[in-house]
Design a protein around this nucleic acid. Structure first.
Length: 272
DNA sequence: AACACGTGGGC
DNA sequence: TGCCCAAGTGT
């Protein structure tokens, strides 16, 4: 849930999930669509699908227990190098090189003296993080958490709180006179994109009690001749986008291809 | 290696 | 207001 999503926005959903599914077996025992529905508006709903798939793999391959090694975690759906290291370190106390966006930024400034880390994670960054990691297991876990928190709370992307930074005296970036970034980060476009249409379609499917016929996506609500049960609001939002038929088609095809939707009785629904 | 993939808070 | 960006991953 935390992948590319701020902690404060994850917390309420996370609490709900753990109340409903305290164990991997609980989640694995439900349809994948329930995971997507319960994901709510967290964003990147494919993560819900993968979390469900990971729960299933944990039940099938690990006796329902979340594995405790980096390699086994990495093999789970939706678990990449960051998540595998973070779970091994923070849940199991292992010494792992945890590198998230916060740690990357702290290292870039404090050690490398640049305003921002590279656009994509590099081998050099991993080597640096590994070299900085304390040898002792417990200390390494605290180190990972501390550097991550420093980045999240003090050494932030915009307007870093250098005056309040506990390690400002050893910051290479401050010492260099706070040089600006050497590149301009690529903005994520949104308005008018397939992503926006996918999001609007999925918002409809999350609330739908029955398969949604293609007509309902493509025609104005007024033309349907009736008020769609429960999905009027997201459906109106989708139509407001006024996307071209081919774009809507791409969005629907993409959702099917990703397993976020499936056809049933001639309509679209979340996966069973 | 570059790109696609959601959403909402903050400035 | 629009833009930036957030505990990344898979292709």
């Amino acid at each position: 849930m935390l992948q590319q999503t701020p902690v404060v926005r994850v917390l309420p959903v996370w609490h709900e999930w753990l109340k409903r599914w305290p164990t991997p077996a609980g989640l694995a025992g439900e349809p994948a669509g329930e995971a997507v529905r319960s994901w709510g508006r967290l964003g990147y709903p494919r993560r819900a699908l993968r979390l469900h798939a990971a729960a299933t793999a944990i039940v099938q391959d690990h006796r329902g227990e979340v594995p405790d090694t980096y390699a086994e975690l990495l093999a789970l759906p939706g678990v990449g190098s960051y998540t595998a290291a973070a779970v091994a370190a923070f849940a199991y106390g292992r010494r792992e090189t945890v590198v998230d966006t916060n740690i990357r930024r702290v290292h870039a400034r404090l050690v490398s003296g640049v305003a921002l880390p590279a656009p994509a994670l590099t081998e050099a960054e991993m080597r640096l993080a590994a070299a900085l990691l304390p040898d002792h297991d417990e200390t390494s876990v605290r180190w990972n958490a501390a550097v991550m928190e420093l980045g999240a709370l003090v050494c932030t992307a915009r307007a870093p709180k250098c005056a309040a930074c506990p390690v400002r005296d050893s910051c290479a970036w401050l010492a260099a006179g706070e040089p600006p970034p050497s590149y301009v980060p690529k903005g994520q476009s949104w308005h008018g994109t397939d992503r926006q249409v996918r999001g609007a379609v999925l918002a409809v499917l999350r609330l739908a009690e029955a398969p949604v016929p293609p007509d309902m996506f493509q025609r104005e609500p007024a033309d349907l001749g009736f008020a769609p049960e429960g999905i009027g609001v997201p459906l109106a939002a989708l139509h407001r986008l006024n996307s071209a038929p081919e774009q809507l088609g791409r969005a629907l095809a993409g959702l099917l291809a990703d397993g976020l939707a499936e056809m049933h009785d001639g309509g679209y629904r979340l996966p069973a």
